[in-house]
């Protein structure tokens, strides 16, 4: 009887999960570069999604100043997966006081990585006030229609 109840519970849970009730995991990785009081840049990496971190490695984070005074960022990503994966990323830029410049001004940008491929994501700050940045990376989205 106990076994039956467990099976029933499992089936119901599975049904709820596949039926669309389960919210997708939208957490991911955050890579970036911070500037301290002396202006020395330090890289930053935060992993919130261990599943994503298993197949995606942040190889390198570079920040530089473009010739017209805008901060440029380059983040190199490598896929550990043999199959094609789609991720999406979004830049956030911060001024010297730590305030985000133009929040939500940058859209989520999809990036396709083929098996074990390394690709770079580049961004340019929206204003010359930017001194640090964060790149949020999460799994790509797709639309599935069952019926």
């Amino acid at each position: 009887m106990k076994m039956k109840a467990m099976m029933a519970g499992g089936m119901l849970l599975a049904a709820l999960w596949t039926g669309g009730c389960a919210a997708p995991n939208t957490s991911g990785l955050t890579a970036g570069m911070d500037s301290d009081d002396q202006g020395i840049m330090q890289s930053y990496l935060q992993t919130d999604n261990t599943r994503l971190a298993r197949f995606l490695i942040v190889e390198d984070v570079v920040a530089a100043q473009s010739r017209n005074g805008l901060m440029k960022a380059n983040v190199k990503l490598t896929s550990r997966h043999n199959k094609t994966v789609v991720v999406q990323s979004k830049f956030a830029w911060f001024d010297a006081d730590g305030m985000e410049i133009d929040p939500d001004g940058d859209p989520w940008r999809p990036l396709t990585l083929h098996g074990r491929e390394t690709r770079s994501i580049q961004g340019v700050a929206p204003s010359a006030a930017a001194v640090s940045f964060r790149l949020r990376i999460r799994e790509g989205e797709q639309t599935r229609k069952f019926m």
Partner: peptide, 30 residues
């Protein structure tokens, strides 16, 4: 149990939902 699970699956997947979305989302709908 299989019948009940199928009904739950249909109910969960076919419910009409209205909510605010992310204006910067990159989800392709078509």
């Amino acid at each position: 149990m299989a019948l009940a699970a199928s009904l739950v699956w249909l109910a969960a997947g076919c419910t009409t939902t209205v909510r605010y979305g992310d204006a910067t989302s990159s989800k392709p709908l078509s």
